[in-house]
Design a protein around this nucleic acid. Structure first.
Lengths: 328, 328
DNA sequence: GTGAAAGCGCTAACAA
DNA sequence: TTGTTAGCGCTTTCAC
């Protein structure tokens, strides 16, 4: 692959017999500048001819910020769950002239991560992963003049907030179980990395919705054997329902309950969450809870208004919907 | 969020009472420049004090390319499968001084996508998604002096290639089934978007490994009802085995076979692929095929050598390993 | 309708 | 050991 010389707008200008300014006007459709159609045509032809590609860094340097909207997100968190929505989000930002880019969120050292993000001078950083945009991290980004969106359980004054209250998952699950007459409800608490924050929030919600029912936290690793042990334990504890944290844990558990001869939902009802594939491949099929995200375009528009006008529009919160199936 | 003035290296220089060059030397540990410890200390203190964050665009402009390694990838393709490996890959690139960034691959208009990527002047573009790095797309990137890695079934001369032969999945599955004495083997062909390329490749491999056994392609949508229909069809066609494309389709099918009273593996053996969660939540547990990726560090090193020295090192190919469980 | 030129923040060759 | 300065590619103001 030969290292070819970079084609710059100056080259285009020479080829088209105009100045660099004119090239810029044409290529950016600058409304204030009026360029004759003939000139415009020559410039476009020259650019095409030479295979000219603008240099984003130069543009960013000039503009003071880049067209990047940064979405730091732990890659392993991207399930089927968000992926379709992320695709839409990328398209929505694209049509507003931004480029959505994903980058791993290095939770070990949030401050170093923030500095690294700040170097890119993105138009905005979307701290979708809960709990990221705190204190010093927010400070570093603000200090570099970078707009941020944060995720929180409730709107935060003066900050663009994406309201996403995980405890509502627990609420939805337990309300449903209680309505079905269940009174001793286990709540799976996964032992795996990064899941404890989510699990705690869901447990809080479960407790909030319990009323007279009893809530029993059940620590569990994501393995066959742990599920088998839990199936036995559930019987010992005389549980009549389990909220399985999410569909994957719940599916593992349903399989184990089946192996142990404990009937679902007669003896023990099971509810999962996140509406994952796993909910459909176990028998009985798993009752689950689905995320309902706001339209990606609304989301992108809100961020755009933050960037362009420093407004703080409201974004509709994530909602959660029960998907009743056969396990409860 | 107040729009604070940008802190530049010039500000740091003034604060530390030195020149901008010295600041640059200190902050980049430039080996050729020798700076006294006292000066170094003052510079670092000033940078910290002012909350200085270097401006990546300026640096990129100067260097001619950015520190970004771009990984265009359809977000929905990131399953459990790759996510752990992607995490390692990001770390590996990070320790080599690059930043791995994911961006959706706009397969609808590859050329426009390539131009968009080229604007960033990334150090390299990793076209992991098969079939992306063809003809004009490669041309656009090469013309902008951007290094690329491509994915192909076999090494390509003069191009850094990640060898990833999907047909081997079909080979592994069918070899296993044939070894178990199966002779009429259905191969699920998913109807869903974007999967047909993969499915065709796996079918080719299945046929290659079939020997005297018969291979029957089975079109299937990813739904409960399609799986139920297929279960019946399998019996009608007198199949004694099915390679289910991947674990999700296979799990759906196993559940449907169970519903239809067709015993697995006695009557029909089932093999999935990709070693997904679904394989563990169905009964019997699903025999699967696992990807064995080369170490992320080896991968990153290879790309680094391409970038730094334009070498074309060999990267170990993706291998596939049978994970025998109870369904075959 | 078009061109000249300044300057965005940074690095590195050269001077001192 | 440190400072001066040119210039990376682009946009935009101002002058013509």
């Amino acid at each position: 692959m030969p290292k070819e010389a970079q084609v710059t707008s100056a080259d285009v200008a020479v080829a088209a017999g105009v100045s660099r300014a004119t090239v810029s006007f044409v290529l950016n459709d600058t409304p204030s500048a009026r360029v004759s159609d003939a000139t415009r045509e020559r410039v476009l032809a020259a650019a095409r001819e030479l295979g000219y590609v603008p240099h984003a860094a130069a543009r960013s340097l000039r503009a003071g910020r880049s067209d990047i909207v940064l979405l730091p997100i732990p890659v392993f968190a991207i399930g089927r769950l968000f992926s379709d929505w992320l695709g839409e989000l990328e398209a929505a930002f694209g049509s507003l002239g931004y480029r959505l880019m994903l980058i791993g969120d290095h939770s070990e050292d949030p401050l170093a991560a923030a500095r690294s993000w700040a170097q890119l001078r993105p138009a905005a950083v979307l701290a979708i992963a809960a709990g990221r945009m705190v204190g010093e991290v927010a400070g570093v980004l603000a200090h570099a003049g970078i707009q941020t969106l944060t995720v929180a359980e409730a709107p935060v004054e003066g900050v663009l907030t994406f309201v996403h209250d995980q405890s509502l998952v627990g609420v939805t699950a337990v309300e449903h179980l209680v309505a079905r007459g269940r009174r001793r409800i286990g709540v799976v608490m996964p032992a795996e990395r990064g899941l404890s924050v989510l699990a705690e929030a869901r447990l809080v919600g479960a407790r909030r919705a319990a009323g007279a029912a009893e809530i029993v936290p059940l620590p569990m690793r994501y393995t066959d054997s742990a599920a088998a042990a839990l199936a036995v334990l559930g019987r010992e504890l005389d549980l009549d329902a389990v909220f399985g944290f999410n569909d994957e844990y719940a599916a593992l558990l349903i399989a184990a309950l089946g192996d142990a001869g404990i009937t679902v939902p007669d003896r023990i009802a099971v509810v999962g969450a996140d509406d994952l594939v796993s909910s459909q491949v176990v028998r009985p099929r798993l009752t689950s809870i689905r995320y309902v995200m706001p339209p990606a375009s609304v989301f992108a528009d809100a961020v755009d208004r933050l960037i362009q006008r420093e407004e703080i529009p409201e974004i509709p919160p994530v909602r959660f919907e029960l998907v009743p199936r056969d396990s409860s």
